[in-house]
């Protein structure tokens, strides 16, 4: 274990909300050195030296990680390890928390998302998010899906909007179940249906990346299986970044896995490798169930 804890303060007090430049991979300024290859051939998102502070709490330390097109990357780790926090950096949802401070470099298709010129509305339209607890708006099923297209002006008229709603629900595998009750409130659906409604709502805006924050933790096994099938389908078109508590789920749905521990990214690798042959002691301990 190598602990180098010198530059923390200077990063925190950097004038912009992020440190300039990016350190070479695997040589982080503080915290753990990540084991495994963080880079990919065709990255959609590239993160370098990302730090997140909540007030005085240093929630994420020097995380560097690439996310590839059309892959499902799973983030695992014990609770409170910063997986969700990291996820919320990728669409700048941390901006809504007044005390949160993010530093480091994150780029989407080569474009720095924390750049002043980057519009956060535009970013979130490109990086969609599905949350831990299904959170349909207290509106009808139809209005839930139509919400994104409406605010972004994606549909020229009602027919086009109908079409977007229908395709999105179809691609989320929910159309058959709800096509007769589009006017009912979204909150009246079952938990699994609600979560698929949220997925449909997300893909209705045609994002490039979908972030999923423990999307199945509030669902029963059958609903979980349906969502997992859906993730499998969706990965043909989107990069999906999923935070999960369940190692089995990570093994089932993802191609790559990243293991987080207390704000550090410990190890990254192909899912097969992480689960069969972890290279870091902490990863191994977690996989084998010593803690978590």
């Amino acid at each position: 274990m190598v602990f180098v804890s010198s530059a923390e303060a200077s990063i925190k007090t950097a004038p912009a909300s992020r440190a300039s430049g990016s350190a070479p991979p695997e040589r982080t300024a503080a915290g753990q050195r990540t084991v495994g290859d963080i880079t990919v051939k065709n990255p959609v998102i590239v993160c370098r030296d990302v730090n997140v502070y909540y007030g005085d709490k240093h929630a994420i330390r020097n995380v560097s990680l690439d996310i590839a097109h059309n892959e499902v990357i799973a983030m695992i780790g014990p609770s409170g390890c910063g997986k969700s926090t990291f996820l919320r950096c990728l669409n700048r949802l941390n901006d809504t928390i007044p005390t949160a401070l993010v530093s480091g470099a994150i780029s989407l298709e080569g474009q720095d998302i924390y750049d002043k010129r980057q519009d956060v509305v535009q970013l979130r339209a490109r990086v969609g998010m599905v949350f831990q607890k299904p959170n349909p708006f207290p509106k009808s099923v139809y209005e839930n899906v139509a919400y994104g297209p409406r605010i972004h002006g994606l549909a020229a008229d009602r027919t086009e909007l109908d079409e977007i709603v229908q395709t999105s629900l179809q691609r989320a595998g929910l159309w058959e179940e709800v096509k007769d009750r589009l006017e009912q409130p979204g909150t009246a659906l079952s938990g699994g249906q609600q979560q698929r409604l949220c997925i449909a709502r997300t893909i209705a805006v045609n994002p490039e990346v979908i972030l999923m924050d423990e999307p199945c933790s509030a669902l029963d096994p059958i609903a979980t299986a349906r969502i997992e099938d859906l993730i499998d389908e969706l990965k043909q078109n989107y990069a999906i970044c999923i935070v999960t508590h369940s190692m089995q789920q990570a093994a089932r749905v993802s191609q790559r896995t990243a293991y987080f521990h207390l704000g550090d990214l410990i190890e990254v690798g192909s899912t097969d490798q992480i689960f069969t042959n972890p290279r870091h002691k902490l990863t191994e301990d977690y996989i084998t169930g010593r803690f978590g």
Partner: peptide, 27 residues
């Protein structure tokens, strides 16, 4: 109004006023 609803709206790229007018206020 729970935070999760606001997050859901912000996550789709809504501005603050859109979130307030279309999600928080109706809720």
């Amino acid at each position: 109004v729970p935070r999760s609803l606001r997050d859901g709206s912000y996550g789709l790229g809504a501005t603050q006023s859109e979130t307030i007018r279309r999600v928080v206020f109706p809720a």
